[in-house]
Simulated scan of single mutants.
Amino acid sequence: MMGEFRDFVARGNVLDLAVGVIIGAAFGKIVTSLTEDLIMPVIGFVTGGVNFTNKFVLLGAVPESYTGSQTDYAALKAAGVPMLGYGAFVTAVISFVLMAFVIFQIVRAANKMAPAKPAEAPAPAGPSEVDLLTEIRDALKKA
């Protein structure tokens, strides 16, 4: 069983997949930082100082025991207050679009660098069905 596992892990596809997952996770962190630390502050500045991470709609009452700010999304969420955090969703959508665009550009560049596939040669011309049937008929007549 260990030999089979070693052969499975040693296959190129598994190692390539593992490297891809690790690089993808690191790339995801970069895109998240780009979105949260660079793009969203600029969008907030353009929209007059709006902080999208704190944009939410309360769906229920805030517990009486809660003593934090009524506008702190993270604290309200930690307190278990039901709410729709549309600001965090907008941030996640922007992050996804950025990541999808970058991956599209990478695949596009890789496709341009890959050697073009040679055109397939046409199938060799052989005898037609009529020719083959004629040969079979002639062979049967001789027999």
Rank of each mutant, 00 (worst) to 15 (best):
F101Y: 14
L98S: 05
K141Y: 12
S65M: 07
S128A: 00
A123Q: 15
A74G: 06
T91Y: 00
T32P: 01
A123T: 14
E129Y: 13
L58E: 09
R108E: 02
R11Y: 09
A10L: 11
A25K: 12
M40V: 06
M40Y: 08
D7L: 13
A100D: 10
E135Q: 12
F5S: 09
K77S: 02
S95H: 03
V90Y: 09
E129I: 15
D16P: 00
D72C: 03
R11N: 13
I43P: 05
G87F: 11
V50Y: 11
A100Y: 10
S69R: 04
G85P: 00
A110S: 07
R11K: 13
N54L: 05
M113F: 12
R11L: 09
Y66I: 13
A88W: 01
A100L: 02
F8Q: 04
L59C: 07
I136E: 02
V57C: 10
G80N: 08
V42A: 15
I103F: 13
M113S: 12
L59Q: 12
V97R: 10
T71D: 06
A18D: 04
L133T: 02
K55Y: 03
I136V: 14
K55D: 03
A26E: 10
D37W: 06
G44W: 00
P82Y: 05
G85N: 08
A92P: 09
L38Q: 06
P124Y: 12
